[in-house]
Simulated scan of single mutants.
Amino acid sequence: MYDACLICRDRGIAWLRAMPDLYAEVGGLLQPGSGRGEGHVSGSKAAPLPCSADALNLRARSGLVTILASWEDAVRDKLGYSPATFRGSYEQTLTGVVGFLVGNAPWIWGAFAAVGELLRLHGQA
Rank of each mutant, 00 (worst) to 15 (best):
A125Y: 07
V75S: 03
W109R: 08
G28N: 09
E91L: 06
D21Y: 04
V98C: 11
I7Y: 15
I108W: 01
M19E: 15
A111G: 08
R87A: 09
Q31K: 10
Q124K: 03
H122Q: 15
G88M: 12
Y81Q: 07
F112Q: 06
L121K: 12
G28H: 07
M1H: 04
A53L: 10
L79M: 13
D3Q: 13
P83Q: 03
L30C: 07
E72W: 04
V97P: 07
G33F: 04
L68P: 07
G103Q: 05
I67W: 15
A113E: 14
Y81G: 01
G99D: 14
Y90D: 12
V115K: 02
L79H: 09
G80K: 00
P32Q: 05
A53F: 02
M1A: 08
L58G: 08
A105K: 03
A60T: 02
T93V: 09
A18T: 08
L58S: 12
G27Y: 08
G35S: 05
L64N: 09
G123K: 06
A55L: 06
Q31G: 00
E72C: 07
D54T: 06
Q124H: 09
W15S: 13
H122N: 15
N104G: 04
S34Q: 02
K45G: 10
A74C: 04
L64V: 12
T85F: 01
R76A: 14
A111I: 01
D54G: 06
A47F: 00
I7M: 15
S70V: 09
A125S: 11
R36G: 00
V75A: 05
M1T: 08
G116T: 14
L118D: 10
A18E: 15
A4I: 11
P83F: 01
L49G: 00
G28P: 04
S70R: 13
C51Y: 06
G103N: 09
D10N: 15
S42N: 07
K78L: 13
G123W: 06
R76D: 14
P20D: 10
P83I: 01
R120C: 12
N104E: 13
G35I: 00
S52Y: 02
A47K: 01
L79I: 10
A24I: 08
F86T: 10
T93A: 08
G99W: 05
A4K: 11
